[in-house]
Design a binder for these strands. Structure first.
Lengths: 342, 342
DNA sequence: GTGAAAGCGCTAACAC
DNA sequence: GTGTTAGCGCTTTCAC
């Protein structure tokens, strides 16, 4: 127990026989140039020797920065988010930033409270995975000039950094895969259209209906109220009750797809024998289902990494233009899709 | 855009016509008694009206507290941890604390770096899910007096707060379940014994071998090198190669169990027809496998909540005795276990 | 019970 | 290029 982290900038200054402000200048890359090479070298060596490390609290209080980034996810238990968070965290730690994590539980009130708490703690930026297409929280951050990056979902018509999967491509590839297997009567089960993921996937499917040989009618296009298993079950039941024949369903999310499988089983229908199903996300263990799920793998970790990079860039280059990054998913073909039977 | 969070303690003091220090006293529950009721009421009202909220950075700089807790997990992508983190986060936010999350990627070097970063940021306490039975990081925290709570795993012979599953009970219940199904030749596939989870489950199985009608030999007890699918596959192959007959395996972890299932399939053995399998953790979708996995459900969220509560208690009541909380798992019987056949 | 003054550790504006 | 000075927002002695 020799060197408690008690050593501060004054101690270093005293040992190096310079003023604390010189130490400060040396230790900040942006001001190091103001100081003679000789002093810089000495101070760095001594700081190292003494095991000095700057107090982010104190420096933050002075500069208004906290070297802290808020990360808000709607539901950490959804396997979609942990790898994203992990990617974010990796890149942040490379920049000596840390992530404050909050889970909004898909609840706007929680989101408000979280945002307040983040602001009070002077986070230097925010990464939100909770955005809706119209989103007050996002608007508020933009107005107040808080650096912001959206992940997974984005908002409508706002100039904001975002990193998402190319949802349209994903849906297109799923539909094309089914077409290649000979399916023509293809239904669509989507998610909430107040999220960009729900809406973009929905619009993509509608475009496919116009542009391809898909024969099914709008009656077989249905958007569920949530991205979960219950909504998937309900949605599939809804489609089955239309009475219009279909041999495949493009489903906008794996959890929805799981619900679909439950519904099929309950109705005594086989997948893929009677109906082929595609999902979206490639959650863990989807390869171990019976049948294994054909789905779109999204580059979770990369989404997180890119988001953190964009945020760092935004913080360090104030005038920087916003970018909406769309990363390609990958179609993973498994047992839940098969050639159109009859 | 009227009230940016710019309003500080001075502003409130001015409007309330008192000195900033009085405002400080009012706003801190522990010093509120020093102030007249009248002033207290007025200050609180005005602070509320002005939308004042204390800057944790500034107050932290003064008091040495940061209202921040570090949470370190070995792998956020392992479905075990997100619900724990979520439980932690919930309770912390009730106490106006926030969680700084870090993922050590099962890597000691990362852990060191993370610990350093946490200390520099003056976290008021740490919740670690990464502990090994002998753990330098844990020792270090204890020596330096950093409030600490271990989750999921604990350490050997140190007086430290911890919240774990009652691993021994879990293994006992799994074994008893198999015994009731008529199995007598029961193998055990465990995990790394340098973790308390690996060791406690292993010891529990050894006790069961002595105390029950289990007939198999020590040759059928094997500990894998890691808690993952590959290790499970290797471990099962190892057991099968012993040449000693068994009709069931108690497996110490779901991921290991998945690997076991792969090995069985490769060898043309059926589960549960030829060999019954039990897991541990009840990860998401384990009910959807073929066969669905009989396993022990862990009270993840509760583990997280209790850990956060213990940490808050430790921070607020310095002399408090340490407690090692063990929560019961729940045996979930599914298709991977069946009556002993032959 | 309340105000005054000092200072947590650091940085930025200003001198020299 | 370096030292001086002031102060970020808050809490905590210490007076009165």
């Amino acid at each position: 127990m020799k060197k408690k982290s008690k050593v501060n900038i004054k101690d270093v200054a005293a040992r190096a026989k310079v003023h604390p402000s010189s130490v400060s200048r040396v230790l900040n890359p942006k001001t190091r140039g103001m100081v003679s090479e000789e002093v810089a070298a000495r101070v760095m060596r001594i700081a190292e020797e003494m095991g000095y490390s700057r107090s982010p609290l104190a420096s933050g209080l002075r500069t208004g920065k906290s070297y802290t980034v808020g990360v808000v996810v709607p539901d950490l238990v959804n396997p979609l988010f942990p790898p994203i968070v992990r990617g974010i965290e990796r890149v942040l730690s490379d920049h000596n930033y840390i992530a404050i994590l909050a889970d909004s539980d898909n609840n706007r009130l929680h989101e408000d409270a979280i945002l307040k708490s983040m602001k009070v703690r002077a986070v230097d930026g925010l990464i939100l995975a909770t955005a809706h297409r119209k989103d007050k929280i996002v608007d508020q951050c933009i107005e107040e000039g808080i650096p912001l990056v959206l992940v997974n979902r984005t908002v409508d018509g706002r100039d904001v950094d975002s990193v998402t999967t190319d949802d349209a491509k994903g849906i297109q590839w799923a539909a094309e895969h089914l077409l290649e297997l000979g399916h023509r009567n293809i239904a669509y089960l989507g998610g909430p259209t107040d999220t960009s993921t729900g809406n973009d996937r929905y619009q993509a499917f509608l475009r496919m209906m116009k542009a391809s040989e898909i024969k099914s009618s709008r009656a077989l296009v249905h958007n569920a109220k949530a991205f979960n298993e219950q909504a998937g079950y309900d949605g599939m039941m809804h489609l089955l009750e239309k009475g219009e024949a279909f041999s495949a369903v493009v489903v906008a999310n794996d959890l929805l797809a799981l619900g679909c499988l439950d519904a099929l089983q309950e109705r005594g229908l086989e997948c893929p024998g009677d109906i082929s199903i595609t999902g979206f996300n490639d959650m863990p263990f989807m390869d171990r289902l019976q049948p294994a799920l054909t789905t779109l793998r999204i580059p979770h970790t990369q989404i997180g990494r890119e988001a953190a990079r964009l945020l760092m860039a935004q913080i360090n280059e104030p005038g920087r233009a916003r970018v909406a990054l769309k990363l390609d998913p990958e179609l993973i073909v498994r047992g839940s899709t098969a050639a159109a039977g009859k």
